[in-house]
Amino acid sequence: GPREVTMKKGDILTLLNSTNKDWWKVEVNDRQGFVPAAYVKKLDSGTGKELVLALYDYQ
C-alpha cells in the first residue's frame, strides 16, 4: 500500500501538494504520504519551502 505518514500534534511537515482540498501530500523524515487537510495548518516559513503544522495526531 501507500507509504503512510504519521504525525503528532505540533509536528512541522513539508507540504508537497495541496491541490486536493481534502488530502494534502506531505513529507516528514524522508517519508511521503497524504494527511487530512483539516489536520494541518499552513505556516509562513519565510523560505521557499511550504510548511504545515500538525494540529492533531494522525497515524
Rank of each mutant, 00 (worst) to 15 (best):
K42Q: 07
K21W: 05
E50S: 13
M7Q: 02
V40C: 10
E50W: 10
Q32E: 12
T6M: 11
N29V: 05
L16G: 01
E4H: 15
Q59C: 10
V28Q: 11
G1N: 13
L53T: 06
N29Y: 07
D30M: 08
A54N: 00
G10T: 00
N29L: 07
V40F: 07
L15N: 00
R31H: 12
G1H: 14
K42C: 06
M7T: 01
V40H: 00
P2L: 14
N29G: 15
A54Q: 01
A37P: 04
I12P: 00
A37F: 03
G48E: 12
G1C: 15
L43I: 14
L43W: 07
P36Q: 04
V40Q: 00
V35S: 00
T47N: 15
V5R: 01
V28W: 10
G33D: 05
V26E: 00
T19Y: 08
K21Y: 06
V26I: 08
F34M: 08
D22K: 12
G48H: 08
S45N: 11
K9R: 11
K8T: 07
V35F: 01
Y56I: 10
Y58H: 03
Y56E: 12
L53K: 06
D22F: 15
S18P: 05
V35Q: 01
Y56C: 13
M7W: 06
L55I: 09
V5D: 02
V40A: 01
L51E: 09
P2E: 12
W23L: 04
E4G: 15
K42F: 07
W23A: 02
G1V: 12
N20W: 05
V35H: 00
R31T: 14
D11K: 01
V35G: 01
Q59R: 11
D44G: 14
Y39N: 05
L13H: 03
V35P: 01
V28P: 01
A54L: 06
N20A: 06
G46W: 10
G33C: 11
Y39F: 13
K42T: 06
M7V: 06
R3C: 14
S45A: 10
S45W: 12
N29T: 05
A37L: 02
Y39W: 07
A37H: 03
Y58F: 10
W24F: 05
L53S: 05
N17E: 14
K9E: 06
S18W: 08
K21F: 06
R3G: 14
F34I: 06
V26G: 00
L51K: 09
K8F: 08
Q59G: 12
K9H: 04
K25V: 14
V26S: 01
V26D: 00
A37C: 06
G46C: 11
P2K: 13
E27L: 10
I12H: 04
L15T: 01
D30N: 11
A54F: 03
L51D: 03
